[in-house]
Design a protein around this nucleic acid. Sequence first.
DNA 1: CAGAATCCAACCGGATACTG
DNA 2: CAGTATCCGGTTGGATTCTG
Lengths: 123, 123
Amino acid sequence: MYARVENDTKGRRQVFEACAEPCAIERGMRMIGGKWTGSILWHLKDGPVRFNDLSRMIGGASKKMITERLRQLEARGLVRREVMDTAPISVQYEITDFGRTAIGFLDALRAWTESLPQDTSAP
Amino acid sequence: MYARVENDTKGRRQVFEACAEPCAIERGMRMIGGKWTGSILWHLKDGPVRFNDLSRMIGGASKKMITERLRQLEARGLVRREVMDTAPISVQYEITDFGRTAIGFLDALRAWTESLPQDTSAP
DNA sequence: CAGAATCCAACCGGATACTG
DNA sequence: CAGTATCCGGTTGGATTCTG
């Protein structure tokens, strides 16, 4: 089981892939290398965050993207979604223990990127 | 200097970006998270490899993609291209010292991916 | 051998508007 | 607040053909 094909509400074909790539590097990249995926995981590392807060933390990504990536991370077991019974409604996203196993790698990546010469920004 | 815009031979707009993303995770991902980029770097870690050999090592990627990614890695200083004076012509790609600084976390990624349950493949 | 050129369908992702 | 739905232009990347 490596690729899952479903139809969305309008019957359009949607492909979810766990990646059939034999190279571990490549599979890993497709697991957490998607646009915004790493950032989301990173911003969840210190505790649960609500949807709109996450949206604000990751400036540049549209809500659509954030939602898509969160759903993907949830399906892969890296993130947990929890609906709080408040008014107005609020939803919390939390990194799972499994998700946390990826933080080490992400931190190595962060360190590497920040060490680059043309780099003068904050994480 | 973060985005460079050029026109190709047919005057079509081409955008090369060093990524203006303020988040280091995100920038890093765009630096080495492109499709096949990590794999290429990984397969160069043990010494110079020729174009077609690389192509064969990374089954699934078209020559077009390999070429594109190699050019990108070269432009970013992670890889060196060397034309050997032989007949027929042969070209070697070699990882630079700078490129080698990325191998650490690529290996962390590999280890993480291989530890995943549904994983039964070789790198 | 090591690409470059061209074509084109599929996918991506931002903008916008709407909802319970 | 936390999304969903829809539109749509731009980009991606595979297939194919050609070349020095």
